[in-house]
């Protein structure tokens, strides 16, 4: 049974249709990335899932049905989390824990545990108003998971952080994965690849691709051969591109990349041709297109 099922979700702000009909399900214990460029509708989708924005049409059904208060099941971190500046980090976590239904003593223990886990326990007695951006982000994650929700939604948890903080938060998410399902939005594919099992790719308010990383790779990745010649790479590349296994050719500075249908055929053919004509080959490399290339292609379509 999925934690949440979304059917035909739509949202319009004034004259702009931001979400044009989303359908997907999130199941327990998975880490899913909501990937998309700025303005793709990631934040709006998460806000609707958290109940902060009401959809125009479509349904969001959490496990337990529409009657139950789904807020027990979820934890949510907005893109720019704001806290009560006059509280200390520890006070805020205990407050959040108690609001989520933990008894006072348990909220205290859990707050201490999470301050430790997120690495801000040194600052626990400092007013949140004096926290740095990275510390606030971590406090935000801590408050989102304090009641052990089944699904944690994080809106761009690493985008505002420096490389160091980003590393730490990603590692933290990697550890959290064992405890709860995570749905997090990002515009950076690398982050998604690093910790997620599945990707929902959002573009212009529509889900244009989704699945596990392995699936996406086999579905979209193509074999690629890169060649570099001592001189006149462009000239030689032109001739090679006429060979049958080549589906497309691209020149990048001194090197030429060829997308090919069958890697075995192509390798043999390329090498025999080059050897026969005695071309001054410097580099021969077989690789695959990255998911980044794939998504760039999809977005440009």
């Amino acid at each position: 049974m999925p934690v949440v099922s979304i059917t035909n979700l739509k949202k319009r702000f004034k004259d702009q249709e931001v979400i044009k009909g989303l359908d997907f399900q999130l199941s327990e214990g998975k880490c899913i990335a909501l990937l998309g460029a700025n303005g793709a509708g990631k934040t709006t989708t998460l806000k609707m899932l958290a109940g902060l924005v009401k959809p125009d049409s479509g349904t969001i059904v959490y496990e337990g049905g529409e009657k139950a208060d789904f807020r027990r099941l979820i934890g949510y971190l907005p893109q720019f989390p704001v806290f009560y500046d006059w509280m200390t980090g520890k006070e805020f976590l205990e407050y959040a824990g108690q609001l989520a239904g933990l008894p006072k003593a348990e909220a205290k223990d859990r707050a201490a545990e999470l301050l430790e886990l997120t690495g801000i326990s040194e600052a626990k007695n400092r007013r949140i108003g004096k926290f740095s951006g990275g510390m606030k982000q971590r406090l935000g994650i801590a408050q989102a998971i304090i009641h052990r929700p089944k699904l944690v939604m994080l809106d761009e948890p690493v985008s505002a952080l420096d490389p160091f903080g980003r590393r730490e938060v990603l590692e933290l998410l990697g550890r959290l994965k064992k405890e709860t399902a995570i749905l997090f939005s990002t515009h950076i594919l690398n982050d998604a690849e690093e910790i997620c099992d599945e990707i929902l790719f959002l573009h212009g308010g529509e889900l244009i691709e989704s699945g596990t990383l392995a699936d996406l790779r086999t579905r979209h990745q193509q074999a690629k051969i890169d060649l570099v010649f001592k001189v006149n790479t462009a000239e030689y590349a032109e001739e090679i591109s006429l060979l049958p296994p080549v589906s497309s050719m691209e020149l990048k500075g001194d090197s030429a990349s060829f997308l090919v249908e069958d890697i075995e055929d192509a390798r043999n053919l390329f090498l025999t041709e080059i050897a026969k004509r005695k071309w001054p080959l410097l580099k021969f490399e077989i690789s695959r297109t990255s998911l980044e290339d794939v998504f760039m292609k999809v977005v440009k379509k």
Partner: peptide, 8 residues
């Protein structure tokens, strides 16, 4: 928003 996504 942060507070009211909790079951408050």
């Amino acid at each position: 928003g942060l507070i009211l996504v909790k079951p408050v």
